[in-house]
Design a protein around this nucleic acid. Structure first.
Lengths: 256, 256
DNA sequence: GCCAAATCAAGAGCAGTGCTCATCTATTGA
DNA sequence: TCAATAGATGAGCACTGCTCTTGATTTGGC
């Protein structure tokens, strides 16, 4: 018995983890609203009322799962980025995009939990905004570093298009201050567009809106990644055309 | 007593409509999983078991609401398109995009129902794919007509980018046959990108992922619409810069 | 080592849910 | 007119989240 405050605290931490693990298992096979506190306690062999000492309500459990999901996705994105050659910005963008899609496909219910419709009557607490920003930071970081090293193509607005309206430019400047230091307004706006495009496509695929429209989303997704990277001014990947892995099959293997 | 089969059938249709109306009301204030059949019957003053003669299960009611939502959104998109000058393709694209966002903002729970995470344990039946395709058809129709009338800018892939990979081109050709007759492969793929970008941005706004990132989404959304229209080769709107209406406020007013 | 205080486990219970079923009534078509 | 059918009803089942009381354990200060 090393730590005085150890025994009880450790068994509590263990049970908390077990509850979350079982919750994740049920989430994976029944979805968010199929998650039942009583079923969890039943699987763990404890009394149904006992779980409330660990998670004061169902929403609190859900929040914990959301935080974990954001963290899991954030880690995957960061690792994918870290695996790339630092100044190959096009490849980094593509790699992170593919990592996000891969994580979403191997954790569909957790993806739905964080990027689907907000759970009814549930308002995201402050705890989630920290972990939520990790993925976004990775994507923004690529654009920022490319900008800092002069690898970004600028002057993006084509001749036929009007320049950024005042409201848009103002928003871009505000955003540049907090997340895109030294990046041109046009680039900031296009980064937002690419960001929403990326998650829009993943969500459409995961939520079934590509069914009957696109037979194999992987190559389309890769092409979109390439074109959106170009759209924000990133250079093309050096290592040739990126690939989202196997064509049709993409079981539970994905990233951890 | 005019029609022999009339009285009973009409009162049944009326009650069915009343149930859906009450369901929509509850949906708007409690979300999809807050929808309770018993609460509906309570509000309608009928026995709780009576509702099952009109909707055999909760999922069937949900399906009916989904179909109605798709139809409502489809109508709004078609009307917005119809209001535009036929050969002003840039304006049509922008108008339909803004109509979609407007409908989503005034029917957030119904939008979440159809474009959010699929409700747990619920698989979309065939009934939904027809109405679901209406919005998509409007968007595709704009690109198609522009293509047919030679208003589409082609040769979109910039010098630095590789041409469409074989898999992507094949998918584009397949899609062109069913939805984009005579439209170049590059355009088809970019239309898919613009489509997912549009709904990606609306979903991010509706589901709170723009919170703390973008203060006023309307101008950004308009700019994205403009740039994505250009991305697929549509000409710029003739009527100047489009506007998504009032800056911040956007209450329940929207489209019906 | 003792003992009050805090923590935890357990079970009963409440109000709510979707859904089924037997029963009774009202409408229908022949 | 009358059997067949559709509709309305209330009881009941199994489930849910959550509360509260009761009793057993572990803790930290003395």
């Amino acid at each position: 018995m090393p730590a005085s405050t150890g025994l009880r605290a450790r068994v509590r931490a263990e049970l908390t983890a077990e509850i979350k693990d079982e919750a994740r298992r049920q989430l994976a096979e029944s979805g968010a609203s199929g998650l039942s506190l009583r079923a969890i306690t039943r699987a763990l062999g404890m009394a149904s009322s006992g779980i409330y000492r660990y998670f004061p309500s169902r929403d609190d459990l859900l929040t914990a799962l959301i935080v974990d999901a954001y963290d899991s996705l954030g880690t995957v994105a960061e690792e994918a980025d870290a695996r790339c050659t630092r100044d190959d910005f096009g490849s980094r963008w593509a790699a992170v995009g593919r990592a996000i899609r891969g994580w979403a496909r191997s954790h569909p219910q957790e993806y739905a939990l964080v990027y689907g419709s907000p759970v009814p009557g549930y308002r995201a607490p402050q705890d989630t905004i920290g972990p939520a920003s990790r993925v976004t930071s990775v994507l923004a970081g690529i654009v920022n570093e490319a900008s800092r090293e002069g690898a970004l193509r600028v002057g993006l607005t084509p001749p036929g298009l009007p320049p950024l309206p005042a409201h848009v430019a103002a928003e871009a400047r505000r955003l540049a201050e907090v997340a895109f230091p030294g990046t041109p307004d046009e680039t900031v706006i296009r980064a937002i567009e690419a960001w929403t495009q990326l998650f829009g496509m993943v969500s459409f695929e995961l939520f079934g809106h590509l069914e009957g429209v696109i037979t194999d989303p992987a190559p389309i997704f890769d092409r979109a990644l390439l074109e959106m990277g170009t759209h924000v001014g990133l250079p093309a990947p050096r290592t040739g055309t990126p690939s989202s892995g196997p064509a049709i099959p993409f079981p539970e293997s994905g990233v951890g």
